[in-house]
């Protein structure tokens, strides 16, 4: 090695060059599996394409079709919001109350673990387990209702309550994750607030209303919004549990466009639908980011 020329090895591991090598893999894969596909999908959304022949340019035709002609697209968006609002409205309060109780109980590790089990269970198993539990005649729930003499609803086969059933399963599934976030928040709450309130004679419900909720507000907002966003883009549960039925009562936009793409091979329309739903989700995400920056919620 001469003193003037630097060897290639040294040059590569110099402070000037090494950082680029460290980030090279994520740039390569990011271009191939993120930026590239995004652009490709944008192009496809402006064409009529079945995945085999040549795409035919239709401009904004697919977006117009979804907005004007397609009777079901708007309904699928409504279903998506119904599901998102429903699963958040059921799941987040349930998780908050459970976390608040766990935080003030013994054997915390045990309770936590029990509630976390669905969190590590694959979606196929969750959907099938509940398909069996909610089955019309042989299902555990209707057997139990039958024993007590209560009416046995068709949880998954009646269009009027199928979405409600999906919402309940989704809430059950995400309970553990939300409990975890709330417990993390609760552990950061200064215990002296509780002691002071107890000395003042507050009961458990008052403690929850006047101490836990206000102190946990940033976490609650965070969980509400991120759960809502996640629910807007999820469709695997409906795909496996109800296949979007009965009579498309549980077809959310994600599922609608997935079928459009991989069953009907209408890739242009499906890509356009994907961009519309993504635009909605990204808008809400950006609002959330601004909200939290301004609120000074640095812990989350």
């Amino acid at each position: 090695m001469s003193t003037r020329a630097v060897s290639i090895g040294e040059w590569l591991s110099s402070r000037r060059v090494a950082p680029y090598l460290f980030v090279a893999p994520i740039i390569v894969f990011g271009l191939a599996f993120f930026v590239g596909p995004l652009l490709f999908a944008a192009f496809v959304s402006l064409t009529d394409w079945d995945g085999l022949g040549h795409p035919r340019w239709v401009g904004l035709g697919n977006y117009l079709y979804l907005a004007v002609t397609d009777r079901f697209f708007l309904k699928s968006i409504l279903n998506t919001f119904y599901f998102a609002f429903g699963s958040v409205a059921v799941g987040v309060p349930a998780a908050l109350v459970t976390a608040a109780i766990i935080a003030r109980s013994k054997y915390q590790a045990f309770w936590r673990t029990v509630y976390w089990l669905p969190m590590v269970t694959n979606i196929v198993a969750i959907a099938y387990i509940w398909k069996f539990v909610l089955a019309d005649t042989n299902g555990l729930v209707n057997r139990a209702l039958g024993v007590v003499g209560l009416p046995e609803p068709n949880w998954l086969t009646s269009p009027s309550i199928s979405m409600l059933s999906v919402i309940l399963v989704a809430a059950w599934m995400s309970l553990g994750h939300n409990i975890l976030l709330f417990l993390t928040g609760l552990n950061n709450v200064d215990q002296s607030y509780y002691e002071a309130a107890e000395i003042d004679g507050a009961n458990a419900v008052q403690l929850f209303r006047h101490v836990t909720i206000p102190l946990l507000m940033p976490t609650i907002l965070f969980v509400l919004i991120t759960s809502f966003i996640a629910a807007l883009s999820s469709f695997a549960l409906m795909l496996i549990l109800t296949e979007g039925g009965p009579v498309r009562s549980t077809t959310v936009t994600g599922l609608y466009l997935y079928d459009m793409a991989f069953t009907d091979l209408r890739l242009g329309r499906a890509s356009a639908a994907a961009y519309v739903l993504s635009a909605i989700i990204l808008t809400i995400s950006l609002v959330q980011l601004r909200l939290f920056r301004r609120g000074g919620v640095e812990a989350h």
């Binding site: 590239g36 596909p37 995004l38 496809v44 883009s233």
Partner: peptide, 27 residues
């Protein structure tokens, strides 16, 4: 570009996966 890359990493997390399924499949 490090600041740009960092915001890219944060921003990319906001994109829903279903948007990528169709193009990646055909690519």
């Amino acid at each position: 570009g490090s600041r740009f890359l960092l915001s890219g990493v944060l921003g990319a997390q906001m994109f829903p996966f279903f948007l990528l399924i169709i193009p990646i499949f055909f690519l």
